[in-house]
Simulated assay, not measured.
Amino acid sequence: MTLTAPGRASDHTAGPGTATSASTSPTARGLWRGARGMVAVGVLVVLVAVIAALFTGTSTEGRPLDPADASLTGGKALAQLLRARGVRVERVSTVDDVVRLDGPASRVLVTDTSFLSADEVSRLSRTRAQRLIAGPVSDLDRLAPGIGPTGETGSRSREPQCALPAAVRAGSAFMGGALFTVPRGSTGCYPGSDGASLVHTPGDPSVTVVGDGAFMTDRRLAEDGNAALAMNLAGDRPVLIWLVAPDEPQAVPGSGEASAADLIPPGVPWAVVQLGVALVVVAFWRGRRLGPVVVERLPVVVRAAETVEGRGRLYRARRARDRASATLRAACVSRLVPRLGLSGEAAPDEIVAATALRTGHDAIWVRSVMYGPTPADDAGLIALAGHLDTLERQVREP
């Protein structure tokens, strides 16, 4: 009887002459399958970098109508044009500075009063400088007496339709926003349905109010007659006092006011996000399922008999007669069942009865051979192997 384990390879199927081989030349599909993970990582990193640049590098947020702000909403371009014309532009953020520079030869430009107290607004209203109020400023009744809001209109290119020299020389401009009443003796320009978006009241000091200061920003300054109108209104005096909100205090390292987040440069969080995304993608790429089985030539061909002998020596060295007998019996049953015409799910009683009927042996003896106890020694194991071989031969050749 040949001692073989279930599922072993036969000797005649493992020869050097019958070994198969497959082509190892790279194909386009194989190259793409191997490189698509890295391509995906690269595309994703570039995508995150572009999004980060869009949100950080091209941000248009700034301080509206600030002569020191070069963003699209700032007023740095107008300040430079006025300085080139010879106007002294003073950027201030307190009423004390306005009072220090106050005089008939000055004009104060006010774009926001929300940061001023009631007392500071009163002091500002008593200055002698000519006033230019741009945008929907609060406390308008105190800074521009007699001029009140009547509604709003959309900002667009409009014709002046008035006799004010500063507006006539400029022509059409991007005006709109808040609309105001035009008191007696005042001039209203760029009219809307409920009033004018530019009102000029002569006097000492004179007051000019515009409903939307967007025409003075860097975004709109080069359109229509916006630059001319802005310079005519703001640059008609040697000194322009440009009142803006105070800068927000910045935490100074070492002062005890800066947190750990304040000390991190702005670009570091975006870099960490990009690295995190790349790490997740690489983890998914490396954890993907295994590819197809690759057929390759074996360096050494081992005969099936040598495998069986090696396993037998291991069983003998460990005195594993239980494992050896179970292996022999399982192998014998697996070969007898199809020869007896039974299914793979046949019960032991059916196998024993069919074997006894085919060989003529007593069913009790057949059961002891095929499903009996473990042999007590090596001699019993050898005898069991002989009995199994006899049963298998008699079933194969009745």
Rank of each mutant, 00 (worst) to 15 (best):
R316P: 02
T217Y: 00
V252K: 03
P165L: 03
R297N: 11
R123D: 11
A326K: 09
R329Q: 01
P202Y: 08
C162T: 08
R297P: 11
L54F: 15
R237E: 12
I51R: 06
A68E: 14
G37E: 06
V199C: 06
V182R: 08
D102L: 09
P160T: 09
L65S: 09
V210W: 01
G310Y: 08
T181S: 15
E345F: 02
E257F: 15
G151W: 02
V366K: 03
V308G: 06
R321K: 13
T327V: 09
A324Q: 10
A40H: 05
A14Q: 14
P375T: 07
A134C: 12
F215M: 08
A347G: 01
R63P: 00
P165S: 10
R289C: 01
E223F: 07
A383L: 13
T150L: 10
G34T: 11
P253F: 04
D119F: 02
A134R: 04
V89Q: 02
S25E: 15
Q274P: 01
K76L: 09
T150N: 00
V295G: 10
T153S: 10
A22M: 11
G372N: 10
E350K: 05
L109F: 13
I351F: 00
R158I: 05
P149N: 02
A304P: 13
P160Y: 04
A84Y: 07
L65R: 06
A346L: 07
G276N: 06
L109K: 11
G188C: 05
M1I: 01
G37N: 04
H387Q: 14
S172N: 11
Q80L: 13
A5W: 01
I133D: 00
G37P: 02
R36E: 00
F55V: 12
G213Y: 09
K76E: 15
L109A: 13
G74A: 07
R313N: 05
G17H: 15
N226W: 01
D377S: 09
A271G: 13
G37I: 05
V281M: 14
G15C: 08
L263D: 09
